[in-house]
């Protein structure tokens, strides 16, 4: 998804997603989600690895790892196995680490 693309709705995708633009809704992917710097996402996100450099609002579930890059802004509750936050990132919400109730189909 390029910087001028936008997506609203529910996406279940067998693969990885890279978001440069605007996205709203619910995204469940088997691969990774990349939210680039400048992107705005208001959604429920579920993926293996999630890398955020833009703005994200919503619940987030990373089956493996979440990386919040410098300049990232995340508002929402997150469930992750591993978490890395770089200096300059902003996070507001609840963090749960380790266990999941819902395991994704990818593996």
């Amino acid at each position: 998804m390029g910087p001028n693309d936008s997506l609203e709705g529910k996406l279940t995708y067998d693969g990885s997603v890279h978001v440069d633009g605007r996205a709203e809704g619910e995204f469940r992917v088997t691969g990774n989600i990349d939210v680039a710097s400048g992107a705005k996402v208001k959604a429920l996100l579920e993926a293996s690895n999630v890398t955020i450099k833009g703005d994200v609002e919503g619940a987030l579930n990373a089956r493996d790892k979440l990386i919040l890059g410098r300049g990232a802004k995340l508002i929402g509750d997150i469930t992750v196995r591993r978490l890395q936050i770089e200096d300059g990132a902003s996070l507001n919400g609840h963090v749960r680490m380790g266990d999941f109730e819902q395991q994704g189909s990818g593996g």
């Binding site: 790892k65 591993r82 978490l83 890395q84 936050i85 770089e86 200096d87 990132a89 996070l91 507001n92 919400g93 609840h94 963090v95 749960r96 680490m97 380790g98």
Partner: peptide
Amino acid sequence: LVIQDGASFSGNV
């Protein structure tokens, strides 16, 4: 806030 990979964290931020 900085959390390095491998660190463990649970709670509200």
